[in-house]
Design a protein around this nucleic acid. Structure first.
Lengths: 191, 191
DNA sequence: GGACGACGAAACGGTTGCGTTCCGTCCTGT
DNA sequence: ACAGGACGGAACGCAACCGTTTCGTCGTCC
């Protein structure tokens, strides 16, 4: 029962988005009376936050492939797989947009994204540091930005297909960029 | 009059999002009767597409600072300035999410983003190639992904402040990553 | 200065969703 | 076998919007 409603929330979110989603429609889709919904959650916002929180409470295992490039490639693969999922691919951008005007949603996504993500980045960079692949001052946050940013941009913004080859090249580039020692600040400030 | 309505569309888009936006609310905000709106556009979708198309018809001049790093930095600055604008920062992610379920919106954004963007990337990379900063096989698409992806990720997804220092480091990293000759494919396939 | 067009305001009937209440049924636990 | 709880369904009054129509008032052009 509760499971049917949770699934219906996802389907409805994907179909019409958070803004247009109505509790009536969720109940209809789940095949339950809306009484059943109101018995569980006091509002649309609370319902969505609860349902979404449940799902994003996954724990991505820190990859350990033995090389920075391999680790980055694995993270890219996991992220790409998630974003390619029809439901997630539709819901994530939607909630992201909604987060800009609903602090509770922003907080939920923040916990989901930033916290789990930060740990991942630090683990990967730390491993690469001990391996001697990158310098000890390497910025883990920047590393993840470099990897996930282009991926998200490609999938969610440009909406172009992401091929294995693209992921390979992206992982290559990111690992290389991080491995290169800080350049001697050639051609500084303005042109 | 028409100008007031256009402005109201933007404000309303930012305030409640495309999904929740109603023509009545737009008319109310613009201080006109909804008759005036319906006289101009047949539907909410057409109205939004028309209004948005008008604005994104800008022409970003191809930067020419004399160095790849400088060109990248300038593009990052322009993009960051645009995304930091309260209206754009709210509206862009919203329309992006809506684009996933409304082909007409997707097409509008595609023209706006991909086409103007592609030209920019190719111009910058071409200039860098003639300067000898990068190899002739450099992928302009990947170059832009590398620059704009992390920026968008940082601003719109992580919602963390983007400092000048961050943009500096990002431009540095991107320029460096592109400048490095393709590595000898060390440690290939799986781990 | 007279005609025409665009305007706002208001109202139309219809739909959808809100959050709540009530009722009759069915399932469960004991 | 019985009691209690959760269920679906229906209806409540209320509000917002839909897209259209009507009407009286301006402003503008010739």
């Amino acid at each position: 029962m509760t499971e049917a409603i949770r699934a219906a929330v996802f389907d409805e979110l994907a179909a019409v988005g958070y803004g247009r989603m109505s509790i009536e429609a969720v109940a209809r889709r789940a095949g339950v009376g809306k009484t059943a919904v109101y018995r569980r959650w006091p509002s649309k916002l609370q319902m969505v936050i609860d349902v979404v929180s449940d799902v994003v409470g996954y724990d991505v295992p820190a990859p350990d492939t033995g090389s920075l490039r391999g680790d980055v490639r694995m993270i890219l693969d996991i992220a790409a797989r998630a974003l390619r999922h029809p439901l997630a691919g539709q819901i994530v951008p939607d909630l992201l947009a909604e987060a800009a005007r609903t602090p509770d949603i922003a907080r939920t996504l923040e916990r989901a994204l930033r916290d789990t993500q930060r740990g991942l980045g630090e683990a990967i960079v730390a491993a690469a540091v001990t391996r001697g692949e990158v310098g000890p001052a390497t910025d883990a946050g920047m590393a993840l930005d470099l990897a996930l940013g282009p991926l998200y941009w490609h999938i969610a913004v440009l909406r172009e297909p992401v091929t294995k080859s693209y992921l390979d090249r992206l992982a290559d580039t990111v690992a290389t960029a991080l491995a290169v020692p800080r350049p001697p600040r050639a051609a500084d400030e303005a042109h």
